[in-house]
Simulated assay, not measured.
Amino acid sequence: MTRDPTFHMIAGGPRPVAPFSHAVEADGWVILTGQMPTDPAAPDAPLPEGVAAQTVRVMENLRVVLRGVGLDLEHVVQVRAYLTEFERDYAAFNETYQGFFPSDRRPARTTVGVTALALGALVEIDCIARRPEGADGA
């Protein structure tokens, strides 16, 4: 049975930097908007220094959104990452990123070098998660 999409804004989630929903869910697929390295508890605070610290913050923000819809990183099947300093930061990004997933359950991933990101961030990550069979949406 196909259901209309559900548009999620997560209470206590990262403050949007543009007009979007934190996540949109359709037929068990949950598509998360790209997250920035902002602190949901202090959205006007300076961004963390360096790509490793920003990657941690972004992954934590993705986790906040996922948990807001009753999922976690273990449900992520695809990731897209955007780096403003690709050549300089790719190795450090990978080193940090890999710690969020078991080596035998890493999502499919694309990493792209871009010229700029909102708020002057070094990294932004979006993802797609799949709700387990039979689980209801949040």
Rank of each mutant, 00 (worst) to 15 (best):
residue 76 V to W: 10
residue 77 V to L: 07
residue 77 V to D: 05
residue 78 Q to L: 14
residue 78 Q to W: 14
residue 78 Q to A: 15
residue 80 R to P: 00
residue 81 A to H: 07
residue 81 A to D: 11
residue 82 Y to K: 10
residue 84 T to Y: 06
residue 86 F to M: 14
residue 87 E to Q: 14
residue 87 E to Y: 07
residue 87 E to C: 00
residue 87 E to M: 10
residue 88 R to Q: 14
residue 88 R to F: 02
residue 89 D to Q: 07
residue 89 D to Y: 09
residue 89 D to W: 07
residue 90 Y to A: 14
residue 91 A to H: 08
residue 91 A to I: 04
residue 91 A to V: 12
residue 91 A to R: 15
residue 92 A to N: 11
residue 92 A to F: 00
residue 93 F to R: 11
residue 94 N to M: 13
residue 94 N to R: 09
residue 96 T to M: 03
residue 96 T to S: 05
residue 96 T to K: 08
residue 97 Y to V: 01
residue 98 Q to P: 00
residue 98 Q to T: 06
residue 99 G to S: 05
residue 100 F to Q: 11
residue 100 F to S: 08
residue 100 F to A: 08
residue 100 F to H: 12
residue 102 P to T: 02
residue 102 P to E: 01
residue 103 S to A: 10
residue 104 D to Y: 13
residue 104 D to E: 14
residue 104 D to K: 08
residue 104 D to N: 14
residue 105 R to K: 12
residue 105 R to M: 03
residue 106 R to Y: 06
residue 106 R to C: 03
residue 107 P to M: 12
residue 107 P to A: 15
residue 107 P to S: 14
residue 108 A to H: 04
residue 108 A to W: 01
residue 108 A to T: 03
residue 109 R to I: 01
residue 109 R to N: 01
residue 110 T to A: 02
residue 111 T to F: 01
residue 112 V to Y: 01
residue 112 V to Q: 06
residue 112 V to D: 05
residue 112 V to L: 08
residue 113 G to M: 12
residue 114 V to W: 02
residue 114 V to G: 04
residue 114 V to S: 03
residue 115 T to Y: 01
residue 116 A to H: 14
residue 116 A to K: 11
residue 117 L to R: 08
residue 117 L to S: 03
residue 118 A to K: 09
residue 121 A to C: 09
residue 121 A to N: 11
residue 121 A to E: 05
residue 122 L to R: 15
residue 122 L to I: 07
residue 122 L to A: 11
residue 122 L to V: 05
residue 123 V to F: 02
residue 123 V to P: 06
residue 124 E to M: 14
residue 124 E to F: 00
residue 124 E to D: 12
residue 124 E to N: 12
residue 125 I to A: 12
residue 126 D to C: 15
residue 126 D to T: 13
residue 127 C to S: 13
residue 127 C to M: 14
residue 128 I to H: 06
residue 128 I to C: 09
residue 129 A to H: 11
residue 131 R to E: 12
residue 131 R to A: 06
residue 132 P to E: 01
residue 132 P to H: 00
residue 133 E to K: 10
residue 133 E to F: 08
residue 133 E to H: 09
residue 134 G to M: 04
residue 134 G to V: 10
residue 134 G to S: 02
